[in-house]
């Protein structure tokens, strides 16, 4: 699997993501500065977590209007895989690649802790190797993770099994509607999620559950 991580001023989870991708794919990972207008050839493009542009205006809003974004949208339209984690999820909604919006946590607090996630759909390339209904522990670290969408959009997401991950066991850390932690695009090739699977890939992290997400993409490419 060839992968590329897009970098923005203020991103700070990019190196974790690059390390995870390198370890799991066994290949070097390309990096792309946000001012570029063309993407290197890759199977998976990742928008990493962090605080692009200091969360000015709205989290992810300014990054979502970067020079690189038209190329990313074109790649998504062509069916390439796009993953946005945390701030990357916020960028995907701001860029219109995923529906809805991520608002200030209902508690108003920045939350940095572990939550329980349920894998609620295994339809997409990102979750195909995961077990549906499995509940796993995953770290979150965000201030704006409160997923909001209008009733019609929620119905569509639920009806099309596009909610990939839900906060489980009463651990919703942000007030997200329907406990939504991650959603996919209609074609299933774009995933946005607030939790950090890249921080759960080696024993020192206390678990390996995050690997399944990246391995799913690799397996779907090989299929």
């Amino acid at each position: 699997m060839k992968s590329a991580v897009i970098l923005f001023p203020g991103s700070n989870r990019d190196r974790d993501m690059i390390k995870a991708l390198e370890q799991i794919s066994g290949q070097p990972v390309a990096t792309v500065w946000h001012t570029e207008t063309e993407l290197p050839d890759a199977d998976l493009y990742v928008l990493p977590g962090g605080f692009s542009y200091g969360d000015y205006l709205r989290s992810g809003a300014i990054a979502a209007r970067s020079h690189i974004m038209p190329a990313l949208k074109a790649a998504a339209d062509q069916g390439r895989h796009v993953l946005g984690v945390c701030n990357g999820f916020q960028m995907l909604t701001e860029a219109g690649l995923l529906p809805g919006a991520l608002m200030r946590n209902a508690s108003l607090h920045f939350v940095c802790k572990e939550v329980m996630l349920e894998t609620t759909s295994t339809n997409s390339a990102f979750t195909s190797r995961m077990e549906k209904g499995k509940v796993w522990r995953c770290p979150v670290a965000h201030h704006d993770g409160n997923y909001f969408a209008d009733a019609e959009t929620l119905k569509e997401l639920e009806g099309e099994s596009r909610v990939a991950f839900r906060y489980a066991d009463g651990t919703n850390p942000n007030g997200s509607l329907n406990d939504i932690a991650g959603i996919t695009s209609a074609k299933g090739n774009v995933l946005g999620m607030m939790p950090h699977p890249e921080n759960l890939i080696e024993d020192l992290h206390g678990g390996l559950e995050g690997r399944a997400l990246f391995e799913s993409v690799m397996q779907s490419l090989a299929a």
């Binding site: 205006l57 709205r58 809003a61 209007r65 909604t93 701001e94 809805g100 969408a149």
Partner: peptide, 9 residues
């Protein structure tokens, strides 16, 4: 429409 407001919310 393009930046100042997020018309979803």
């Amino acid at each position: 429409e393009q930046l100042l407001a997020n018309t979803v919310i």
